[in-house]
């Protein structure tokens, strides 16, 4: 399977850099999978899991919150405001994230941001359930 270069950076560090087969992005308009040779696209991300597949049938999941994905001829670059690999997730972190999202929800009056916060909360709850906390 053709591979392409993928980089995941958060403000604090570079989380992933290397060749991969496919990456599933939690884009604002719905999840999308990027494969090698994808046409150039720039999309905003919502809160959710990003799945990296570097060997068939073997994915690595990373929780991202907000950010951008940039696909160009050089590969895929994801700028995540906050990124947490699945193995580093704990109940405390998730609870904290949910609390922040809820605060965002309560603080805003615009329907768009409210909706975004709502979906973030749903995603985080789902993640919590999936990880059996």
């Amino acid at each position: 399977m053709a591979t392409f270069n993928f980089e995941l950076v958060s403000p604090e560090r570079v989380l992933f850099s290397g060749d991969v087969d496919a990456v599933v992005l939690p884009a604002t308009e719905g999840d999308m999978t990027v494969l090698a040779g994808h046409s150039p696209v720039m999309t905003a991300l919502k809160t959710g899991f990003l799945v990296i597949t570097s060997t068939p049938g073997n994915g690595r999941r990373i929780l991202v919150r907000g950010g951008f994905a940039d696909v160009n001829q050089n590969g895929l670059t994801v700028l995540a405001e906050r990124a947490l690999p699945e193995e580093e997730l704990t109940q405390e972190i998730l609870d904290h994230e949910i609390l922040t999202a809820e605060m965002h929800y309560d603080a805003s009056n615009e329907p768009a941001t409210k909706q975004a916060a709502e979906s973030a909360i749903a995603q985080l709850r789902e993640a919590k359930a999936a990880l059996n906390f």
């Binding site: 884009a27 604002t28 308009e29 046409s39 150039p40 696209v41 720039m42 999309t43 160009n72």
Partner: peptide, 18 residues
């Protein structure tokens, strides 16, 4: 790049968040 970019959502919205 000369390649045409797709923007999701549109360009202006991305710029306002970026």
């Amino acid at each position: 790049s000369d390649a045409v970019y797709d923007y999701e959502p549109d360009e202006g919205e991305i710029l306002t968040t970026l």
